[in-house]
């Protein structure tokens, strides 16, 4: 069951469900597969401590890590080494769940620049990985590029120092008018959204964040101002009660399913919330000045 919960008082009901919590290689993966079938994408979160023992005790770890095995073995810091291995294992298991195949049939590769890809699968299945502290988040998509980013919700961050780097003029003006605590929280959300978007594009931090404008609709949902065609969807969730997780997804036409693997249904079908969700259901964190009437 997901431990995701929305921040009190700032949530808006939306169609994008929170990331699925998967505590180990054995799953449960049904919710991930259900979301893949319904929307073409799913986001998984866990902590590397939860996966550590089963991952390291797996006699097939070397095969599973493949070309990442030397990097794992040569990683200079013990904690970083374990997180590196576990995060790659989570990517493979999440992708394997999406395709409903064994994880060791997949080869995780990297494009020049570092973007992770599943070798040979092209746009048939795209992945994104982020980790911060002990949290690991993986996005998988059979219906267009996906990007995920996470930060500790309480991370100290200087708006004054970073505003010109992260914000457009409009965003900076909006944030500047907020109380400091709320501004920091909103600023962090904006940052993770831009990270998720540029990771979905495969550009990462090479793309200037201050040239990417985000706006918020009356429900508090984020949208990219340049995305006039409405191709992109964004969401931010509070996960494990202390991590902000943002995801970005471009809704491409689903490709033909390779090898008999069923293609996802139309990607615009509203997501039915699994019954295992917490009572408050799927919620995202809103943004100041763009909420519905009576919300502020």
């Amino acid at each position: 069951m997901s431990v995701t919960r929305a921040a009190p008082g700032r949530e808006q009901v939306v169609q994008i469900p929170p990331p699925c919590h998967v505590p180990g290689p054995d799953g449960p993966w049904e919710q991930v597969q259900e979301r893949i079938e319904q929307t073409g994408r799913a986001v998984v979160h866990t902590t590397w401590g939860q996966w550590l023992t089963p991952a390291l005790l797996d006699p097939g770890l070397r095969l599973l890590l493949g070309r990442d095995w030397p990097r794992y073995r040569q990683h200079p810091a013990p904690a970083g080494r374990l997180c590196f291995a576990v995060s790659r294992v989570v990517v493979k298991y999440a992708a394997a769940a999406a395709l409903q195949i064994p994880a060791d049939r997949l080869d995780l590769a990297y494009l020049p620049g570092g973007r992770p890809v599943l070798r040979g699968l092209g746009t048939d299945l795209q992945v994104s990985l982020t980790h911060t502290d002990e949290l690991i988040v993986v996005g998988v998509s059979r219906a267009g590029p996906v990007g995920v980013d996470a930060e500790p919700a309480g991370r100290p961050i200087s708006f004054e120092l970073l505003r010109d780097h992260v914000c457009t003029a409009e965003e900076a003006e909006l944030l500047a008018g907020l109380p400091e605590e709320e501004r920091t929280e909103r600023f962090l959300r904006l940052w993770t959204l831009k990270e998720a978007y540029t990771k979905a594009l495969g550009h990462g931090m090479r793309r200037r964040f201050s040239a990417l404008g985000f706006a918020w609709d009356e429900t508090g949902a984020a949208r990219l101002t340049a995305d006039t065609a409405g191709e992109w969807t964004f969401a931010t969730h509070l996960v494990e009660e202390r991590f902000l997780v943002s995801e970005a997804h471009r809704r491409d036409t689903a490709p033909a399913a390779p090898g008999g693997i069923r293609a996802p249904a139309a990607v615009d079908v509203p997501v039915r919330l699994p019954s295992a969700e917490p009572p408050q259901g799927a919620r995202v964190i809103g943004f100041p000045g763009r909420r519905g009437p009576g919300k502020r």
Partner: peptide
């Protein structure tokens, strides 16, 4: 090799 097998597709890529 099966064109539907992701492992075979990875070999083809290499």
């Amino acid at each position: 090799h099966d064109p539907a097998d992701p492992a075979a597709r990875a070999l083809a890529d290499r």
